[in-house]
Structure formats: structure tokens, C-alpha cells
Amino acid sequence: MNHPVADAAATENGYYRRLQAAVEELLILKGIVGRDEIDREVAAMEERSYRRGAAVVAHAWVDPAYRERLLADGAAAVRELGIEIGALHLIVVENTPAIHNVIVCTLCSCYPRALLGMPPDWYKNIEYRSRVVREPRAVLREFGLTLPEPVSVRVHDSTADMRYLVLPMRPAGTEGWSEAQLLDIVSRDALVGVALPRGPEGS
């Protein structure tokens, strides 16, 4: 969890960085974990990328039956693709012409890390967390996304045990594209709901 007071102290030789180093040293000295185990876990953490989430979306776009399963049970459908997500409880929310979904954790920085990797800094920022529930359209505009008026916004506050993935609408003009081509147009921000995938016309 990242708390705003911790953010400032987490840099360089800040309090939390030193605390983390001290706890790590102690755990190793006491033989509770090995340095290699820590390195492995950090490497695995850094290896996970939003491309896994993008692959899920691309597959849902080309396979309507898979899309149904993904919306009914997100975690099971992701595992179906051989993506290892541990005990993640995943809810997939679908954008439609009438509804735009956006994800936040107002309390801290809950994020589907097993699927999307590390959250971007803005996601943990107090400004995003406090404003996106209160004035989502204004915040989305600052991300460069202006929603047409008839679209209603559904903000999902990830406050407890569930994690969220946005299933964006497939852009016009991508008919006949391969799954690999589609995967490339799904950005991390589109999976959180602060951007839309871009089609060939930039739509």
C-alpha cells in the first residue's frame, strides 16, 4: 500500500527506504528468506506487464464466447489463457456506447498487479484518487479523453478484495485484424479506463 505521507519518505534515503533495507537485512540474517528469493520475486514483479491484460482484451475482441466467459468470471477466463495470476479476484467491466468504466483505489493503490504489473505513479497519486470519483470527466479530459455527453461514467473504487480490468470497445476500422495487431493498440491506460484504444483512423 502506498500512503501519501509515505510517498515523500520513500525516495532515496528516506525513512521508508531505510526501514525496508533494515527489515530485508534482518529477514536474511535470521534465515527467514534468502536473498535469491527476494531477487527472484522482485524480478518476477518487474517482468509482469500490462501486455498480459492487453492480450486478454485482444482475445475477447476476436472470440465472443471468450468475452462472455471473461465478463462472467474474469479470473477463470484469464487463467484459461495460461496467464498466472495467483489468487487474484478479477472483475472485468465492459465499455459500451452508453457506459464508460474507470478504475481507482481511493484508499491506497489496489491494482491488478498480477495482470497489469506495477501501477503507474499517477494511479497512486492523491490527486487522481480523490478527484476521479468526484469529477471523472474533468480528470479524463486531462488524460486527453473527452467523453460524449450521453455516455455515463461508472467509477469503480477498488476498496477491498476485488481487482478490476476495463474491457474497452474494439475501435472501428480494425475488422479483420489479427489478435497480435489488436494487442498492440491496447495501452495500459485503456485497461484502467483513462484512455481508449486507437484504431487506424485514430478513433
Binding site: 455515463s152 461514467v153 461508472r154 467509477v155 473504487d157 478484495d161
Partner: peptide
């Protein structure tokens, strides 16, 4: 409904916030 959470909510009338609650 966002309007129920904040009486002065100034964006779309159908906007909602969904929250996990025990």
C-alpha cells in the same frame, strides 16, 4: 449515484460510483 454522494455533483446525471463494502 454520484449525485446522491455529492448533491453538487456537476457532471453526468447518470454517473455512478461502485464500491466494495462489507
Amino acid at each position: 449515484r454520484s449525485r446522491d454522494l455529492w448533491p453538487d455533483y456537476a457532471e453526468g446525471g447518470d454517473d455512478v460510483v461502485e464500491i466494495e463494502i462489507y
